[in-house]
Amino acid sequence: MAKFKQIFSYFPSTLSTKKFQGLFSVIEKLKGTTEKELRIVLLGLDNAGKTTLLKQLASEDVNTVTPTQGFNIKSVTCHGMKLNVWDIGGQRKIRSFWKKYLENTDLLIYVIDSADKKRFEETGLELSELIDEENLKGVPVLIFANKQDLTTASPTSEIAEGLNLHTYRDREWQIQACSAISGEGVQGPSSGMIKNSENDRLGNDSEYRAASQIHRTICERV
């Protein structure tokens, strides 16, 4: 029980906001959560690069990604925490399912195709709807401005403005430029997915390390 208390003190905001679910709060504790587990949900329009990002986070091959019809889950260990990352398909017809996956979420990662200007409005709309979800109340949002490797990609400042991120109240948010396909902005130097030369550059620039970004986002809340 001491360990539970420790976790509680470590993540007071996370755990206390969770609704008491009767028996399942019991079962959750029963699981012996000595590990710090975080549930991260990856959302965004179709073709935003969610699954590629997920695979990149898990240091897997990103060349075999196909449009997601359902959802993918990967567990990534990061800074001693187990991150359970849920990537749910973004096609319009399955977006209505998103809300079934928001319960007990510790962090929302919202992925945007920075080069798809035509759909900025659509993606902004979807994000604002998510923000209003009861289950995501108070949950921090990390926005990945993906596909920065494309020359037509918009800069993060532009996207942040377009999404009216500054109007978000009672919500932590951050926007992060990245290229899920190359791993830039997603992976730390430890991944081995990035060439050594890049490692040196990225290694010095912690701004480009999404993993630590996620970590910071979580820790800042404690």
């Binding site: 997601t68 959802f71 993918n72």
Partner: peptide, 24 residues
Amino acid sequence: EEENKLSYTEIHQQYKQLVEKLLE
């Protein structure tokens, strides 16, 4: 398959309910 079907979630919910009922 590596990818999960959306229907899995629905079934998981039903499973939760069943276990909850039985244990209660």
